[in-house]
């Protein structure tokens, strides 16, 4: 099975771009399935259902959505298998800019909004720097000069990625994205590794502490001056 993992900031147009790309995949005749990961709520599954693509929703609730996506990969692949899908697309929630849920043999796609300013590519971290494809959306809302600078900034962070400028409303650029989906390789879960390690998340806050004063916190903690230590027994 081919596996595409799509990350990107909320509202960047991941779903809109995917709907167009998957319509192209439908026309080619390849069977696809979508898993949409979100934290608390999503109605994106109805949008995918409209183009007749089997869709499964995963809500991570209290767990980090990226950790949740990685932890549930096996279930997702099994579910896609049951639906006879040859292409599994996982759309992540993509929130904290620290994780990149791409695995080594999946196709890693990062969707990034051009109106978020030319410094955004420098801020978003591994989900851009380890992506195979960077999809720039909303480019029609800024000037050509700013669009070109945005593109250059992406290449500074990830010189090897392929950039696709796409329009989630008209579907422009999405055929190229579908082409890349088709070219991606088969994955087998036993061999798969993450491209980038998931962040440390082992402090008292992770297990439900609500008091804010420093003296209540234990675990691997990093201070604002950059000093990191383990507090506890």
């Amino acid at each position: 099975m081919k596996m595409v993992i799509v990350a990107g900031t909320p509202g960047s147009g991941k779903t809109a771009v995917l709907i167009h790309a998957l319509q192209n995949i439908n026309e080619i005749g390849l069977k696809s399935a979508v898993v949409k990961i979100d934290c608390l709520y999503t109605d994106d599954d109805r949008k995918f259902a409209k183009i007749n693509i089997p869709t499964k929703v995963g809500l991570s609730m209290d767990m980090c959505p990226d950790h949740y996506a990685i932890y549930n990969l096996e279930e997702m692949i099994n579910w896609a298998d049951e639906n006879q899908a040859e292409l599994l697309v996982i759309e992540t929630a993509g929130l904290c800019h620290r994780c990149a849920p791409f695995t080594e043999n999946s196709l890693g796609v990062c969707v990034i909004d051009a109106t978020s300013g030319p410094n955004t590519p420098l801020k978003v971290g591994p989900f851009l720097s380890t992506a195979d494809i960077a999809v720039i959306t909303k480019g029609d809302m800024i000037s050509q000069a700013e669009r070109e600078i945005f593109r250059e900034r992406i290449l500074e962070v990830n010189p090897n990625c392929k950039i696709i400028e796409a329009n989630g409303l008209s579907g422009q650029g999405c055929a190229e994205l579908a082409d890349e989906f088709m070219k991606s390789q088969e994955v087998s879960l036993d061999q798969e590794k993450l491209r980038h390690s998931a962040p440390l998340a082992v402090c008292t806050l992770c297990v439900g502490e609500t008091k804010v004063n420093k003296k209540y916190h234990r675990g691997i903690l990093r201070r604002i001056d950059g000093f990191q230590s383990y507090e506890g027994e």
């Binding site: 030319p118 800024i142 050509q144 700013e146």
Partner: peptide, 12 residues
């Protein structure tokens, strides 16, 4: 080269 109507600079 395009001179579009989008003249709002977002770049800080």
């Amino acid at each position: 080269a395009q001179l579009s109507q989008n003249m709002n600079f977002l770049a800080d």
